[in-house]
Design a protein around this nucleic acid. Structure first.
Length: 420
DNA sequence: TCTGGGGTCCTAGGACCC
DNA sequence: TCTGGGGTCCTAGGACCC
């Protein structure tokens, strides 16, 4: 029998910001998305004030000010670094673990049941807090889905003190009854709406449905979720993460773009970022998808959205080849006199170069050639974007400022915190 | 004025094969 | 008038996750 623990960092981005600004402790705090567009993280105090997830900042700006909420732009360098630290600590407690997202990690606790799991997890929790400053909650269950539910309840309950073990627990049914169906991992907005219309409102109700009905209404994915609720583990621990299949770089523009050259400049930067990313993974791409679109929120203007795929053959991660293909894609999607609000590129069909089909007439897939490597090294050493292909480095006019960003405390020498 | 970014998996339908 | 059966591959779109 398997036993899973799900460790989830409490209000992760907000907690990261508080480490270096202790004065923010116990005060309402929100973190905004790129371009300071909308709220993507909230401290408990901000949640209590009723600020919803995804709230557009411009609509809530005055509210937030009035209520004394601290507003910060997102600082991914900081969050990424602290995430690595938390994951490193967690991986030392069990031989098998899976990093599930920037702030979540599954541990396989099978074989640990001679211990009191609540006490063991309490110890893990204390270590993580002491060594990284990040508070976490831990849920334990016989399947990943049940450990998710346990985690959610552990966060809510004062009594739980951050840990809830639903493995062989007499409280399992009660826990499922107290979990709304839309809070079940794998049940999103559409499905919960449909389920509620059928009188299925809790995780407990969902667990009691018949297989055939679920299979018909929710497909094999939904059936898997129901089986997991029943205690049958269907979603395994992925402790050896598979290579990525796609890598995407996209941004919304602070100010919409209409001219070809601005768009070209943006797409060039996206292509550079994406190719650099797959070089880091040691992968080559077999295709690139370029997409540009207007704002779906602006109903006044003509809507336009277009994406196009350009094949890369032989597969490559060379920055010039990917740049060339990206611009070819842009030429095919671009139409003049349109207000573009968002653009991006997607590198697809990613493979390891050794897995490429050998071709008598074409060279071996290009992987980390000297020029690309020099390019990465320079940008790594002097800061991203120092050199760019085919354009003079200039301010990104299309990128609105992040007005409330804290320093990259842990990843840049010139932004280290200073003790006075 | 101002609404994130990056992923995965599944399914349905069309093109094409023998 | 009558028009098989079985399969693969690809793509677009829809669902979900954080």
């Amino acid at each position: 029998m398997t036993i899973f623990a799900l460790i989830d960092c409490n209000n992760f981005y907000a907690s990261c910001e508080r480490i270096f600004q202790p004065k923010l402790a116990n005060k309402p705090l929100v973190v905004l998305s790129n371009n300071d567009g909308c709220v993507i993280a909230r401290s408990n105090e901000a949640k209590t004030l009723g600020i919803p997830m995804g709230a557009p900042y411009f609509k809530y700006k005055n509210d937030l000010k009035r209520q004394g909420v601290t507003v910060l732009s997102s600082n991914y360098a900081l969050y990424g670094d602290l995430s690595n630290r938390v994951m490193t600590v967690l991986s030392s407690f069990t031989p098998k673990s899976e990093i599930y997202s920037i702030d979540e990690c599954f541990l396989d606790l099978s074989g640990f049941d001679h211990l009191n799991l609540t006490e063991y997890c309490q110890y893990i929790r204390q270590c993580v807090f002491q060594w990284t400053g990040i508070p976490v909650s831990i849920g334990i269950g016989q399947t990943k889905t049940l450990s998710k539910i346990a985690n959610k309840l552990a966060k809510k309950s004062q009594k739980a003190n951050g840990i809830l073990d639903l493995n062989n627990s007499p409280w399992l049914d009660t826990a499922l009854q107290r979990t709304k169906v839309n809070d079940v991992w794998g049940i999103g907005r559409r499905w919960s709406k449909m389920l509620k219309s059928q009188g299925i409102t809790t995780a407990y109700d969902l667990r009691e449905t018949t297989d055939g009905w679920v299979r018909q209404k929710l497909g094999v994915t939904g059936l898997r979720t129901v089986k997991e609720l029943q205690g049958l583990s269907c979603i395994k621990l992925e402790d050896d993460p598979a290579d990525k299949q796609t890598v995407c770089i996209s941004r919304s523009f602070g100010n919409p773009l209409t001219d070809y050259n601005s768009l070209k400049s943006a797409i060039t930067i996206f292509a550079d970022m994406a190719s650099s990313k797959i070089r880091k993974y040691g992968l080559v791409a077999g295709g690139i998808n370029v997409f540009i679109q207007t704002s779906p929120f602006n109903t006044e203007i003509e809507q336009y959205s277009k994406s196009i795929t350009v094949g890369l053959y032989p597969q490559t991660n060379n920055f010039q080849s990917i740049h060339r293909a990206a611009l070819k894609g842009l030429d095919k999607t671009f139409r003049p006199n349109i207000c573009y609000k968002k653009a991006g590129i997607l590198l697809t069909d990613l493979i390891r170069p050794k897995d490429a089909i050998k071709d008598f007439f074409h060279p071996y897939p290009q992987n980390n050639d000297q020029l690309s490597k020099a390019y990465d090294d320079i940008n790594q050493r002097f800061g991203p974007g120092l050199i760019q292909l085919g354009q003079v480095r200039k301010p990104k006019t299309w990128y609105a400022t992040q007005n409330y960003k804290t320093p990259s405390f842990t990843t840049r020498w010139d932004e280290l915190p200073c003790a006075k």
